[in-house]
Simulated assay, not measured.
Amino acid sequence: MADDSSRVDTEAILNGDRAAFEALVESETSRLFHVILRYVNDREAARSLVQETFLQAYKNLDSFRGDAKLTSWVTGIGINIARSWLRKNKREQPIDEDDMERLQPSFRFGRYTGSFEPWDPEQTAERSERKQLVHDALDQLSESYREVIVLRDLEERSTKETAEILDISRGAVRVRLHRARQALRELLNNHFASEFA
């Protein structure tokens, strides 16, 4: 995914230049909308949450520490706002840690004990009914696992940037991503296994 953040003049924004902030809004709105939409699965809510994100970012520019790119900081605000919205509006409970553990592959004497069914998430997500299955499976993951899949696999952010956005270590990103992918594979296996037999 192309990085539009090179067009963002962070220094001008931090110095109160409204035109520079408007350029940030213009360059990041589409990307931020897609990140938030993957969280909330509601286009109208995502549009509203994007506006709220930029409003909060503008109000809190003085709290930007400069540890990460400004665009990563704004994305982090958007994710937090989407999390809050989900807590207020989510009807289904995500998979808990015990269920996540059961969805991990099993090994005996160092050998994988399950049957391997190849699955390419990019290929299968191209058709709309499959996209919905993948989206539904993502919704079943806990917030911490869903967000790492969204940022790394769907938004194609680097491990470093994902760690900055989520304020966790790179190692934690890798572990969560591995566990989330394994859980998704198990959740989707019943739907897709027959097509790859």
Rank of each mutant, 00 (worst) to 15 (best):
D4S: 03
D4T: 03
D4L: 01
R7M: 07
N15P: 04
D17S: 10
D17V: 04
A19V: 04
A20D: 11
E22F: 00
A23W: 01
V25N: 10
V25C: 09
E26Y: 01
S27A: 13
S27K: 03
E28D: 10
E28H: 00
T29N: 00
T29M: 04
F33E: 01
H34F: 01
V35G: 04
V35P: 00
R38T: 00
R38A: 07
N41A: 08
E44H: 07
A46S: 07
L49W: 06
L49S: 05
Q51F: 05
Q51Y: 08
T53N: 06
Q56W: 11
Q56R: 15
Q56V: 14
K59E: 13
N60S: 15
D62W: 09
D62Y: 10
S63P: 05
R65S: 15
R65N: 13
R65Y: 07
D67T: 14
K69W: 10
L70T: 06
S72A: 15
W73E: 10
T75M: 12
G76N: 08
I77Y: 08
I79N: 12
I81R: 13
A82Y: 04
R83L: 13
S84Y: 07
S84E: 15
K88P: 09
N89D: 12
N89G: 12
K90P: 04
R91E: 15
R91S: 15
E92W: 09
P94R: 13
D96L: 03
D96K: 05
D98F: 11
D99R: 03
D99M: 11
E101G: 09
E101T: 13
R102V: 06
P105M: 02
P105T: 02
P105A: 01
F107L: 11
R108A: 13
R111A: 11
Y112S: 09
T113C: 09
F116W: 08
E117Q: 08
W119I: 04
D120K: 07
D120I: 03
Q123Y: 00
Q123C: 01
T124A: 04
R127L: 06
E129I: 03
E129P: 02
L133V: 02
V134K: 10
A137M: 03
A137I: 01
L141V: 07
L141A: 05
L141I: 02
L141W: 03
S144Y: 11
S144C: 09
R146Y: 05
R146F: 02
E147G: 08
V148C: 04
V150W: 03
L154I: 07
R157S: 13
R157V: 07
S158P: 10
E161G: 09
E164H: 13
I168E: 11
R170M: 12
A172F: 10
A172C: 11
V173E: 14
R174K: 14
R174N: 14
R174I: 12
L177I: 03
L177G: 07
R179H: 12
L184S: 08
L184P: 04
L184C: 05
R185F: 13
L187K: 11
N189L: 14
N189D: 14
N189R: 15
H191I: 02
F192Y: 14
A193P: 06
A193F: 08
S194N: 15
A197E: 15
